[in-house]
Amino acid sequence: MPPAVPPSADSATTTPFLQISGVSKHFGGVRALHEVDLDLRRGEVIALVGDNGAGKSTLVNVVSGVQRPDSGVLHVNGVEVRLDSPRAAAAVGIHTVYQDLSLCDNLDAVKNLFLGLEETDPWWRGRTLRRRAMERRAREVLDSMSVRLRSFTAPVGGMSGGQRQGIAICRALVSDPSLVLLDEPTAALGVSQRAEVLDLILRLKEDNRGVLVISHDLKDVQHVADRVVVLRLGSKVAEFSRGDYTSSDLVAAITGAHEGVA
């Protein structure tokens, strides 16, 4: 396990990168999110925990531009934004690593990293792919995250879960985002690969990026998160800072045993 990094000292004083205020979302009669407020700062890891159906995925979908909230506003660097597509979210520096990773198994690592963002020569040079430039950048990003691949040319379908997760995270980094959303990044991984991914999360933080991670694993959460936000039945019921809570506090908040802890 890598050493935990302390929260940056000034994180409480700077303007949050993303401010979520009063966000609600209904699906028919089901209340998925109710008046949720949340601030996310660069250089801070926030974990989102909660039982199934607590609204974690809906909140991530709202922030990543997949779903529009029914009410509430989002501010990025103090400016109100409408995120109505993943592209709009990417444009303001928010990138999402989906639980299924969204990698093309038949393509190699470099092509996956740049998928949809390929660099090409100008039209008078035939719009040829700038493969060398992309490979150089891919190597930089992968090295910066210490993701080690045996080959850049092998299809990613044959790689380990940890390597694939690493590529998926690096894919988010190609466009230098300010906030990375991770949906259950450790769910399907073995012990050593899980450690690799937690290490990646801490690296994102060292690079002064914000991280919002959904996880079911409370041990992982305690290990990486500067703050833990607990959702229950669509509402934010608790928020804990590093060191201020025990596992049983988390479990109690998640299950609703101490209603009103927040």
């Binding site: 969204s102 038949n106 393509l107 092509k111 998928l115 949809g116 390929e118 792919l129």
Partner: peptide
């Protein structure tokens, strides 16, 4: 051969065949 291996269109062609959802999320 040029179009499929040296252009952005070529990569997108293979991506669509490999995983449509991933391709769609990448904006293809």
């Amino acid at each position: 051969a040029y179009v499929t291996t040296r252009t952005r269109y070529g990569i997108h062609l293979y991506a669509v065949g490999g995983d449509r959802d991933a391709a769609r999320r990448a904006g293809i």
